[in-house]
């Protein structure tokens, strides 16, 4: 559906995206994930046609759109700010593109009402000023405004980043549902790894203009291919030096003591009878109580290891207590 071929994007001398290749499939919810300044928004804006690429090609359905102006690409966009026109009401905002395309009055009305119904905006809301709407309603207007033009692709630039945590969670679900209902190919930009994991069919993780890994959320999380991806997504233990020696002495698989080893926090167990696991001696030095779970900090040799315990009624441990930790060497990664 969308194909990037050797795309290079430059700002004067600064190379924002270097020799980038990617293919996004029809109907896919695809996320560009990375810390701020990694080039993900730049890439999104090049798809929409706001940024000229330096070299390479962008194809949509095998059609070369590299030099097509934004309005000819038929790609909709929802901005981080939503960019709703403050001087127009909801109806006028949604109708804007239709009017530009010279649809008749009746057609405009029909289309606007239809899309409004689909995104759950009622008639009174249609004639409100956009400033009177809640954050969630504003988001739906922005999406409706993009979808009413029946784009081939919908691009979303961090649409949830300026909302509070609770609304963010709610809108995330709403967004996913809308995407499923419309079945539209969606490219989503975010720096929030949780958002990326819950929403996406596939994720591309970026760092400093380079693509680190592409994969399903499961692959990205469990089969991280680089130190950066490992560290950027989820909580992780970094094991070094003498701790690696201890593990090597108990495990059949041997690790390089000169490199950092990575182990997900939820893969450190305190109770286990699986033979694949090895037993390590540790001491509790701190904990953070979080309601649903508690995060414990253990001293093991000169390393600090974290794990998560579900607060399901089992006994609490206290600081200073000696404890056995069980880990599966197969869960440890080194790059």
């Amino acid at each position: 559906m969308i194909k990037f071929e050797n795309v290079v994007i430059k700002y004067d001398e600064f190379v924002a995206i270097n020799d980038f290749n990617l293919e996004i499939k029809e109907g896919e919810f695809f996320t560009l994930l990375g810390p701020s300044g990694c080039g993900k928004t730049t890439l999104l804006r090049s798809i929409v046609g706001f940024i000229d690429i330096f070299s390479g090609r962008i194809k949509v359905n095998d059609e070369d759109v590299t030099h097509l102006p934004t309005e000819k690409r038929n790609i909709g966009i929802v901005f981080q700010s939503y960019a709703l026109f403050p001087t127009m009401n909801v109806f006028e905002n949604i109708a804007f593109g239709l009017k530009v395309n010279k649809l008749s009055k009746e057609e405009v009305k029909k289309e606007v009402y239809e899309i409004a119904r689909k995104v759950d905006l009622n008639e009174t809301q249609l004639f409100r000023n956009v400033s009177e709407l809640s954050g969630g309603q504003q988001q739906r207007v922005a999406i409706a405004r993009a979808l009413v033009l029946k784009p081939k692709i919908l691009c979303l630039d961090e649409p949830l980043s300026n909302l509070d945590a609770k609304l963010r969670g709610q809108l995330r679900q709403e967004l996913k549902k809308l995407q499923r209902d419309f079945g539209i190919t969606t490219i989503y930009v975010t720096h929030d790894q949780e958002e990326a994991l819950t929403l996406s069919d596939r994720i591309a993780v970026f760092n400093k203009g380079n693509l680190e890994q592409i994969g399903t959320p499961h692959e990205i999380y469990n089969k991280s291919q680089s130190e950066f991806v490992c560290d950027f997504i989820g909580d992780i233990n970094k094991i070094t030096g003498s701790a690696i020696d201890t593990i090597n002495s108990l495990s059949e698989v041997k690790f390089d003591r000169n490199k950092t080893a990575f182990l997900r926090t939820e893969r450190v167990l305190t109770v286990c009878d699986d033979k694949k696991y090895i037993k390590l001696k540790a001491e509790i030095i701190d904990f953070e109580y979080n309601g649903i779970f508690t995060r414990y900090y253990y001293q093991m040799n000169d390393n600090i290891i974290m794990n998560i315990e579900k607060n399901d009624g089992s006994d609490y441990s206290s600081i200073g207590e000696k404890i056995d930790l069980y880990i599966n060497p197969a869960d440890i990664k080194q790059f």
Binding site: V48, T70, E71, F79, Y82, F85, F96, V100, L149
Partner: peptide, 14 residues
């Protein structure tokens, strides 16, 4: 002015 509003309008063909 929010530059996004200008880009949005441009994107919709204005």
């Amino acid at each position: 002015i929010d530059h996004g509003t200008i880009e949005a309008a441009k994107n919709m063909g204005a």
